[in-house]
Design a protein around this nucleic acid. Structure first.
Lengths: 198, 198
DNA sequence: CGACGCCTTGATAAATGTCAAACGTCGTGG
DNA sequence: CCACGACGTTTGACATTTATCAAGGCGTCG
C-alpha cells in the first residue's frame, strides 16, 4: 500500500493544502516554501517513517504574506501513505493515547524548527557541519551517509547558495573532517571527524 | 496572583528546566539559548497572555550539543503565572477540550518557529522589517510600537549584530518606512509604510 | 557522439561583522 | 544642583564572509 511519486514530482501543493497528513514509506520527501521572488526555503527532509503535512505554515491565522507556495515534493522516487487530517483529529479526540502521540509529534516538530533556526544564525561551515551530523544520525550507516538530495536542495535548506555548499564540502574534505568517495556526484559522504563538524 | 521578576532577571534556567509552564501576566519575557562560545539566540518574545515553557528545545531526545544554557528572562519588570507541566498534561488526558487546545498551541509554536526560520534566510533589512511588522501586530497601538527590548535583544533574535540592527533602523527611517520619535533610546517606532517593510 | 544536468572552481562585488569612538540619557553621589 | 559615570545607541573605517557571475569538468542518457 502507498502512493508512488517520481523524483521531483509534487506530492501536495497549492491545490490540496492541509487536507491530508502523510507518512513516508520509502524514499525521501522535502517540504518547502517558495517566496514570490523565487527564493525557496526547504523546511525539512523526510525519510521512511517520518510524518509530514501535519504542520502547514499558515495554520491558525499565522499566514505568511510573502509565501507564494507551500508544497511537498519527492526528492527521489518515493512512496507515501496519506490519511485525512480530519479523520486523524477525530480519532484523537476519542483516543487518549493517539492524542498524546499527536501532541508529542507537534512538540518535536517545534523543537526541530527551533533547532533549524539556531542553525541559521551560524556560519556556513557550521550549518553544513550540523546538517551532515543530522543526516548521519538519521540515514547514516556507520560513518557513511548517502545523500539523496542535490547540493541545491541542501543550499535551500541551509539558507546559503549552491556554490557555498560546494566550497564548504571541499574545505571540510581538505581538513579531513569528511571524506568524499567518487560516487556519481558528490552524494556519498564519510564522517571522519565528527567533533570537527561542530 | 502571579510571580514578579525584575528586568533582566532569570525566570527559569539551568536549575528547573521543563518543570513548569508559564503564562505572561504583565511585561515582556524572552526565551533564549546561549551557546558554549557565548553566542545567544533569542527564540521569542512573550507578551501578556502568551504561554512559554511548553517547548523546551531538548525535549524527546532532540538535545543540542552546543547549547550551554536554555532560559527565560524578564525583559522589563514582569509578572507571570506558573503551572506544573505534569499537572497540565494530566488534566489534558481527561479533558478533551484542553487536549485540543494544547495541540493547537504546539502546532502554532511549530508554525512560529518555521516562520522564524524563513526570516533567517532573508537579508538584514527583510529581517528587521518582518520583526517590526510582527511587533506591530502583537503590541502595536495603531501604527505606534513601543519596543520593550534593546537593540541587542533584537539582534540576537534576528541573527545579526547590534550595529546592523541600528544601521537598518536608520536606513528604514531615511526611506520613510518608519519614524523614530525621540523616545528614551530608540524604543518608539512608527510604522509609516508597511508595504515597504516587506 | 552530443546534449544536458549537476558539481566544482575562480574572479569579483555586495552584505555583514568587527573594532573603535562619540553621543545622549539617566541615575548617583558629591 | 551639578558633575560624573554607566549604559545603550549611533556612526565610521576596515576586515571578513558570502553572493553573484562566469566558465569548465564529469557523468548520464538519449
Amino acid at each position: 500500500m502507498g502512493i508512488k511519486f517520481g523524483a521531483n514530482t509534487e506530492i501536495c501543493g497549492e491545490g490540496e493544502p492541509r487536507e491530508y497528513v502523510y507518512q513516508v514509506v520509502k524514499g525521501t520527501v522535502r517540504t518547502q516554501k517558495v517566496l514570490h521572488d523565487g527564493r525557496r526555503k526547504i523546511e525539512g527532509f523526510h525519510f521512511p517513517g517520518d510524518i509530514f503535512g501535519l504542520f502547514p505554515g499558515d495554520i491558525f491565522g499565522l499566514e505568511e504574506a510573502d509565501v507564494h507556495s507551500l508544497s511537498a515534493e519527492a526528492v527521489v522516487p518515493s512512496t507515501v501513505r496519506a490519511t485525512k487530517r480530519r479523520t486523524l483529529i477525530w480519532l484523537a479526540s476519542n483516543d487518549r493515547k493517539l492524542a498524546e502521540e499527536l501532541l508529542t509529534l507537534a512538540l518535536r516538530e517545534a523543537a526541530r524548527a527551533h533547532r533549524q533556526a539556531l542553525m541559521l544564525i551560524m556560519t556556513a561551515q557550521e550549518r553544513v557541519g550540523s546538517f551532515l551530523l543530522e543526516m548521519g544520525e538519521r540515514i547514516g550507516i556507520g560513518d557513511l551517509v548517502m545523500l539523496p538530495m542535490s547540493r541545491h536542495d541542501i543550499a535551500d535548506h541551509l539558507g546559503v547558495t549552491t556554490e557555498t555548499v560546494s566550497r564548504t564540502f571541499t574545505i571540510l574534505e581538505s581538513a579531513s573532517a569528511i571524506g568524499l568517495p567518487n560516487a556519481p556526484n558528490g552524494r556519498a559522504v564519510v564522517l571522519q571527524d565528527r567533533s570537527a563538524l561542530k
